[in-house]
Design a binder for these strands. Structure first.
Lengths: 194, 194
DNA sequence: CTCGTATGTAAGTATTTATTTACTAATCCA
DNA sequence: TGGATTAGTAAATAAATACTTACATACGAG
């Protein structure tokens, strides 16, 4: 399960390639150029291209898992925890646009069952953490109760994704961090009590 | 600009192909099988595959434009207009999953400037209509004012898109119409006055 | 030292895909 | 009628792409 240094190197090169060009640019040829070896060398370290994509997703998963656990372990007000997760995601997109490029490429993965399942899992991780936080927040009377947590989750994750998608479609023109902050402020205003 | 009957036929076949398989399945070979002609015949009617994709987007655009104009022309309360647009979109995804497949394939279009611009335009059409509705709603004291309309729009469009994406990733397992209704009810609850 | 394993290269292969070409049959109009 | 236009076919082409194979070299353990 854990990767050798060279495997890490290849996965990182793949991520860089996706970030700078697009997921379409992730070909074995391009990847081998990026790493500085020939195509055959890639196959010494991964059995297939799918395997590489899979490890990219696993890497993002383990980052996300770490962040989500850290967030849950402290005992801030619910809304602060949500903001923390929200802004952490925004920042990780800003610092590493490949994450967005990969995660938002479900359409490409759709025929690859294994990949779309891993993307799904990543979403589920976020959802279940948010679910737990919102539930507590409602019990503690910090968050409004008239709206089911499932719908709040949809709005939070959906609005991030949409904002990031437009940021990407528009060629990274606007300041994502700033827009993310306005958005989470609006969400706070809507779902906090009073 | 307007298409011949045979061109319509080809575009519709392309949409069907995307809906039933995926956007990856839209190859000239598959398309010609679907239509019942050979590959060469396709090129009698369209200059390139890109041209076909473009006309798919234009078709969706004109449908959406029609719907948005219809909505604006009546004088319902803002929230009812929003719900109308919202549910119209949901229903069009239910009836024609290709629309979702195409619109959510920005990642594939990203290197095709022309295509991503048209997807962008489709989003802008929805945004500007919603913007107008929300503005009036806030003036008329129907909608809350503490939150900027840009953020509300992000939440509305984002939450639809996210719900539809999960519906697709999960293989159309849940009832999108029902979930859409719960979601718009929640939104209504959050952004209506009182 | 040397043998085997790990890791690289160069040059394939097989397949897919968009597009083109040369040809044909039908249909329309002068 | 007859010549051009339209719309189809079959087959070729060119490029891209994931992956394989045969060979080379370095290096660590016995």
């Amino acid at each position: 399960m854990t990767l050798s240094p060279r495997q890490e190197e290849i996965v990182d090169a793949a991520i860089k390639l996706i970030a700078e060009k697009s997921i379409q640019a992730l070909t074995i040829k391009n990847l081998s150029n990026q790493v500085g070896f020939t195509e055959g060398a890639i196959y010494r370290h991964f059995s297939s291209k799918l395997d590489i994509l899979l490890h990219i997703l696993l890497k993002f998963q383990s980052n996300a898992r770490q962040m989500l656990e850290d967030t849950c372990s402290n005992d801030l007000p619910a809304m602060d925890q949500i903001e923390h997760i929200f802004m952490h995601n925004i920042m990780s997109f800003v610092e590493n646009p490949a994450i967005a490029a990969v995660i938002f490429s479900e359409s490409i993965f759709q025929n690859e069952d294994r990949l779309s399942r891993e993307v799904f899992k990543l979403l589920e991780m976020h959802e279940s953490t948010l679910s737990c936080i919102i539930e507590k927040g409602q019990e503690r009377n910090e968050l409004i109760e008239g709206v089911q947590k499932e719908e709040i989750i949809r709005m939070i994750i959906g609005s991030i994704r949409y904002t990031v998608t437009k940021w990407r479609l528009g060629g990274y023109q606007f300041n994502l961090q700033k827009e993310g902050k306005s958005l989470i402020d609006a969400i706070r205003h809507l779902i906090s009590k009073q």
